[in-house]
């Protein structure tokens, strides 16, 4: 069913943050992540005619970004001329026993699953934010994620504080609803 359409004019506003989050958790460098997102948009424009409308716009863009992330790792590995996985023998002198056994991930460590879960949570929140009206999401992101002072936001956007708090309140209420449906 070709019910989806591409609308490149809203890409940056709608998906930039979502894609950026996805990229940052994978390359852990915000500058590189930014470039990858930009490249994704370029690639999306270029191959827009190949878009069949089967997937939602965002899914389609994420698929492109995935390739970009892989390409990025390929590039930095070939630059160094060594695309290899290096495993060092554990340098702890107190380790004893089988080498392989010591390399196995600790099944009781919860950091890995926590990390994955938090990343998904981040994308879920970002998804909900992108559904907010533009002004509300702008204020919410500035306040909550970028942690900018109330006063500075008011100056930048030309609103007064009580205006800001009303928008924050509406944004938060909408986010609670959205996360209730999509996260819990």
């Amino acid at each position: 069913m070709a019910s989806h359409q591409l609308n490149p004019n809203i890409w940056v506003d709608q998906y930039a943050d979502y894609l950026f989050n996805y990229a940052v958790t994978r390359v852990s460098d915000s500058e590189i992540a930014k470039d990858l997102v930009q490249e994704t948009f370029f690639a999306g424009l270029k191959s827009a005619k190949n878009y069949k409308g089967e997937a939602a716009e965002r899914t389609w863009l994420i698929a492109i970004l995935k390739r970009k992330v892989i390409d990025h790792y390929r590039k930095i590995n070939s630059k160094k001329g060594k695309a290899e996985v290096r495993m060092n023998y554990s340098s702890h002198s107190d380790s004893e026993g089988d080498w392989l056994e010591e390399q196995v991930a600790d099944p009781f460590s919860s950091t890995n699953t926590n990390f994955l879960e938090n990343e998904e949570l981040g994308l879920a929140i970002q998804n909900c934010i992108s559904k907010l009206p533009k002004k509300q999401s702008q204020v919410f992101v500035m306040k909550t994620i970028q942690g900018i002072d109330t006063e500075d936001i008011c100056n930048e956007l030309g609103i007064n504080p009580s205006n800001l708090w009303v928008m924050i309140h509406r944004a938060r209420t909408a986010l609670m609803d959205c996360l209730n449906k999509n996260w819990y």
Binding site: D17, F20, G122, M176, L179
Partner: peptide, 16 residues
């Protein structure tokens, strides 16, 4: 509301 704040703090949120 408090739960939302906790979630936002827990998730690694980045934005442009």
């Amino acid at each position: 509301n408090g739960r939302l704040t906790k979630l936002c703090n827990k998730a690694p949120l980045h934005s442009l």
